[in-house]
Design a protein around this nucleic acid. Structure first.
Length: 125
DNA sequence: ATCCTGACGCGCC
DNA sequence: AGGCGCGCCAGGA
């Protein structure tokens, strides 16, 4: 390909959408995480701007939340976001995702090695 | 090239 | 716990 075609050329937006698309169902990622994934640590805000124009149904923009498991935003339909997340089996409190660390992505599910590194069941409620 | 906006992040009150 | 303000970053006018 062209000598100058580092992935960086792909619009920040394109990279973000690609990353978001990789978020598995039932999992969530923060704007900051996405930013870092696309090689723009600290650009969480910019990521949010991208999501804002995310009209692509193939992009699970609802899986992108704010830091600490906060819901973040979703246009004027935050309720919609909670609904979608719940539909994926996530526990969502009125203000945040429950067990955020457990459903956060990307996360290394300890390649089924030793076994007990992280309790898959942190305890209900 | 400059200014302003924003689905953020984090510290502080 | 919850709410407020400042700082950061990329895009658009």
């Amino acid at each position: 390909m062209t000598p100058t075609m580092p992935g960086s050329l792909a619009s920040f937006r394109a990279r973000v959408l690609a990353a978001v698309r990789r978020i598995p169902r039932g999992r969530v990622a923060t704007y900051g995480d996405i930013a870092e994934l696309v090689g723009a640590p600290g650009a969480a805000r910019a990521v949010g701007n991208v999501m804002r124009g995310c009209s692509d149904p193939s992009v699970p923009c609802h899986r992108v939340i704010a830091a600490a498991g906060a819901l973040g935003g979703f246009g004027g339909y935050l309720d919609r976001k909670r609904q979608l997340l719940r539909a994926e089996g996530l526990e969502v409190t009125p203000t945040r995702i429950r067990g955020f660390a457990e459903v956060r992505w990307p996360v290394q599910p300890r390649t089924a090695g030793g076994g007990k590194a992280t309790r898959r069941r942190p305890a209900p409620v």
